[in-house]
């Protein structure tokens, strides 16, 4: 059976969401149009508003409605600690599960020359300006433990050293509650290289 052109357009539009294929798109569309028109209207309005209003924080590049995000504007945070992460989701993860009270810088990715992602794309010029401003004592590199994440961290560490700032990298190794037998060799050898005295 074929739907009206507008309905088809709605299906296509819904499929831009992650994990949404033709079947789920159809279910969502029917639900919005048949059972919850009020919800659909709200979704449409909020989406439009969010698109117009939410941009990136001037200082940390995280998503924000204001020019300076709530974290950067908070005077109670430790402004001498800067944690560098790859995505806004990483900021949330660190915020929710660690006692970190410093500030963030979001790269929105990592260096990946083969995909055309260089220093400008991940905002290194803005990060450098930030380091230049002074006041930061330690840069904590919390990029992903992949080869690219490690290389990105390396370049930022070099940059930090030039400004006399101490760069540190978060530890990586065996997950809590994990079993050594089932851990891949790379992780295990990293864990060994980064062992600590008890």
């Amino acid at each position: 059976m074929s739907y009206s052109p507008l309905f088809n357009r709605l299906l296509e539009a819904l499929r831009c969401l992650p994990g949404v294929g033709p079947k789920s798109a159809q279910r969502m569309a029917l639900h919005l149009l048949e059972r919850n028109r009020e919800g659909a209207r709200k979704l449409a309005e909020t989406l439009q508003e969010a698109l117009a209003a939410i941009g990136h924080c001037r200082r940390c590049r995280n998503l924000s409605e204001t020019e300076l995000c709530a974290l950067c504007a908070n005077p109670n945070r430790d402004h001498s600690l800067l944690c560098v992460v790859e995505t806004p989701a990483d900021v949330l993860a660190v915020e929710q599960s660690t006692g970190f009270r410093g500030l963030y810088f979001v790269l929105m990715g990592h260096l990946s020359p083969l995909d055309g992602i260089g220093p400008t794309e991940i905002g290194l010029d803005r990060l450098e300006a930030r380091l230049h401003e002074g006041g930061i004592k330690e840069v904590i590199l919390a990029t992903n433990p992949t080869v690219e994440g490690g290389a990105t961290a390396h370049y930022i560490a070099e940059l930090a050293r030039e400004y006399g700032i101490r760069p540190t990298r978060i530890a990586h190794g065996v997950p809590l509650g994990g079993e050594l037998e089932y851990i891949d060799g790379g992780t295990l050898s990293h864990a060994f290289a980064g062992r600590r005295e008890l």
Binding site: L111, P119, E128, L159, E162
Partner: peptide, 10 residues
Amino acid sequence: ELLAALRRRT
């Protein structure tokens, strides 16, 4: 190109 860009930086 990336090497050149990184080197230009500092």
